[in-house]
Structures are given as C-alpha cells and as structure tokens.
Design a protein around this nucleic acid. Sequence first.
DNA 1: TAGGCCATCTGGTCCT
DNA 2: AGGACCAGATGGCCTA
Length: 211
Amino acid sequence: MVRVTGAGGPGSSAGGIQGPLRSSKPPRELSAEEQQELRRKINSRERKRMQDLNVAMDALREVMVPYSSPTGVGGPLQHPYLPPGAPPTGRRLSKISTLVLARNYILLLGSSLQEMRRLLGEVSIGMGISGTVPRLLLTGGWPFLTGPGQLLLSPPEQQMGAAKCPLLLQGTQEEPMAWGSGSMSESPVCQCGVCRTPRVVHVNPITRFPK
DNA sequence: TAGGCCATCTGGTCCT
DNA sequence: AGGACCAGATGGCCTA
C-alpha cells in the first residue's frame, strides 16, 4: 500500500524549509523552485529507502512461517513459540514483532543446533565412532544453549526499545523471566509495546552471542 | 473513541 | 556536495 502524499502533506508543518535549515546551512542561494525540487528529490530518496526497508521486512516476515500467511492455513494459528493468548494470527506482524520474533527464532534454531550436536556426540561416543562426525557439529563453535531447559519464552522484551521501557533501565537486561515460571509471576510485566511481545531468553547468561 | 501501527515529510548528522 | 541514515512530527487507517 503506497500512500501518495505530495509535498506539504503530513509533516510538512514540522519546521519547514525556512526554519533551522536556513540558519544552519551555508548561505548557498537557491530559488524557491530549486528548493522545492531538492526537497522532492530528498523526499523521494527517503521514500525509496523506507520502501526498501519494508521489502526486507516482508522478506523477513515470510520466513517467520507461522505468522507469514495473512489468512493462515487451516484456520487460526497458534505460534509454537508464543504463549496462549498471544496476538491472534492472520494479521500481518508488526515491524517490531517481526524483529523480536526473528530474534527468538534465531535463538531457537541455535539451541536446536546445540542439542543436535550434543545428541550426535552421545551417539558417536556410544558407537565408538570418532572422526566421522563433522567436527563443526560437535565442537559447538557458537555459544548456544546447552539444553532445552535454557530456552524459555518471556513476555518482556527487555532489549529493544530500552529507551522507552522502564524495566530495561534496571540493569538486568539479560535476566530471564521464564514464561509461566515462578519468577514470572513475581516479575513486573511491562506494558510497553515491545515488552508485550514474547521472546526467547537464555537462562544461563554465559550462553550469549558474542559481540 | 483511544491507541497502535504505519507512511511520509523534514532537518540534522555522518560518510564517501 | 550528495547520499545514506536517523529521529521527531504529523496525520491517516484500523481495531478493540
């Protein structure tokens, strides 16, 4: 959906080209027409940039399979990584939810990989195999989770939107609040738009992505 | 009707 | 100098 709004549309009253721009820019004389043309050009670029961003966001939505279908398949869907009562499916994911869900998804995949490595290691040891299992699978190059119990769902998104979320200012960004756990019931649930989106958290702070 | 989400405009800053 | 990126402001659309 592309909304066509000409110059002077929403936002045009904010500041305006005659405001701070004139005082901060070097005194290069531009006619009103030139200024308008320049503004149109800049606006067009920005529009294109945001549209590209949305294309990328849509691509990301597509891989978030359970939410990607606008109509869903086989009726209402319950996302396996979201708690009951999570936002109803069938609606397009918001940008922030897409990002948060993608992050959770990546972490989940990481934990699955780690678990697979562990199982492979057990199997190879049990069978007396050494050297036939790809080293990469066994060595665990990434600091992923070491067990399924360490991957939990939590409603408070405590990382994104830190500037707005009061819970994020308490210096416990990575402290988990397990979904449905005791700590969960005792913890404040932030109602900001970000925090209401569940996320996957690490129970063990050691198992984090490196910077 | 309020609130969430979004597109767009705009000015500022940084980078090439 | 021009483009990319960012954040604030604004207004429209939609849903509960």
